[in-house]
């Protein structure tokens, strides 16, 4: 098991180096002088230019700059945002809970709806239920989610008036010492109506973000289940006279879920990309919207840090999924 763990970690090292090179190279690849680019259209005096070049270290050899960049990363220094002057890491960590909350609820919805949908479709293969649910899954899989979000806003916020258009909670509520997780904060504050407000704000964005993972999980569950149902041990279980519920629920489902768990893990990257679009549509104050804002503000340190941190999150989650996979599936662990 320890060898398995170490192997996984060792595998990450070259990827991590690659990610830092990409993030480091990003500002260098911008055509022109980075200091002038960051100054934007306002321009900059020659003295200030020289001062900034020295301060930011652009006058030194590129490999020195790179090693210093990586060294700083290990000390938690991701540079400072150009627009707020605050450390990029602080900004990221302030906004990250909003994205985690949205992403967790989305993946929860996707799993709780997707797996049963796929499993039942497989059991009732060829039925109307199978065809309708898999048709719906294909539509979900093909969905431009930014449009889907706008449609839901038109219908539920515009016509029915059930849900708010944007934000995380009504402006009435404010939690100065909150954790950043609105569901938890609103519940802990004990203010009446706060939790309901948070839920009402969360519901549309999480449905939008859940759409594609849900479709992928449903399709994957169905095909995994179909494969398992044709295995010998399932036939043996049936032949032994076990109830269909035991055969499907215990023998087949447990084995079918193994590849599905990997699929769920792989959706984290999809969720991150989806968060960029979802948060933009719903003005959700998370890292997706922050990245878009940073790009349009030409706040390059923020973009660089955000790119690095988001890739890091995806990498760590994939590692956890890998390890989990090893725990669930002994065949992998002992290989």
């Amino acid at each position: 098991m320890i060898r398995f763990l170490l192997g996984r970690f060792a595998y990450l090292v070259p990827t991590f180096i690659g990610i830092t090179i990409v993030a480091f190279g990003f500002v260098r690849l911008l055509p022109g002088d980075p200091v002038l680019l960051m100054a934007g259209e306002r321009g900059i005096s020659p003295e200030r230019h020289a001062q900034l070049t020295e301060q930011l270290g652009y006058d030194r050899p590129i490999w020195v700059q790179y090693f210093e960049f990586v060294g700083n990363l290990f000390q938690g220094d991701f540079g400072n945002s150009l627009s707020t002057k605050k450390p990029v890491l602080d900004e990221f960590l302030t906004l990250f809970p909003a994205t985690i909350e949205l992403g967790l609820i989305a993946i929860l919805i996707a799993t709780l709806v997707g797996i049963p949908l796929g499993v039942f479709a497989a059991i009732k293969r060829g039925s109307v239920f199978d065809q309708v649910s898999m048709g719906a899954a294909l539509v979900g899989y093909s969905m431009p989610i930014f449009w889907w979000g706008l449609l839901l806003i038109i219908f539920f916020s515009g016509i029915l008036g059930w849900t708010p258009v944007s934000g995380r909670i009504d402006l009435l509520y404010f939690f100065p010492n909150g954790t950043g997780f609105m569901l938890w904060d609103s519940l802990a504050s004990g203010q009446s109506g706060a939790f309901t407000s948070a839920v009402r704000h969360l519901i549309l964005p999480s449905i939008v973000l859940a759409t594609i993972p849900m479709a992928v999980i449903a399709r994957q569950s169905r095909s995994a289940m179909l494969e398992v149902l044709s295995e010998d041990y399932v036939r043996t279980a049936r032949a032994k006279g076990m109830s269909p519920f035991r055969v499907v629920g215990i023998h087949a489902l447990r084995n079918a879920l193994i590849p599905v768990i990997t699929t769920i893990g792989l959706q984290i990257g999809v969720l991150m990309a989806g968060a960029i679009l979802t948060e933009t549509i719903f003005s959700w104050p998370g890292i997706g919207k922050w990245m878009i804002d940073s790009i349009s503000r030409r706040d390059y340190p923020s973009v660089q840090g955000g790119l690095l941190l988001m890739a890091g999150v995806v990498m760590i989650v994939n590692l956890i999924v890998d390890l989990l996979y090893g725990v669930i599936n002994p065949r992998i662990r002992h290989k």
């Binding site: 690659g18 911008l30 988001m310 890739a311």
Partner: peptide, 22 residues
């Protein structure tokens, strides 16, 4: 293959976005 792994480590839309920004 390591270079391919690095590209796949980024959320695809995010990487595309940043590249377009460049």
């Amino acid at each position: 293959m390591r270079v391919m792994d690095v590209i796949l480590a980024f959320p695809s839309l995010l990487l595309a976005l940043v590249m377009v920004a460049i």
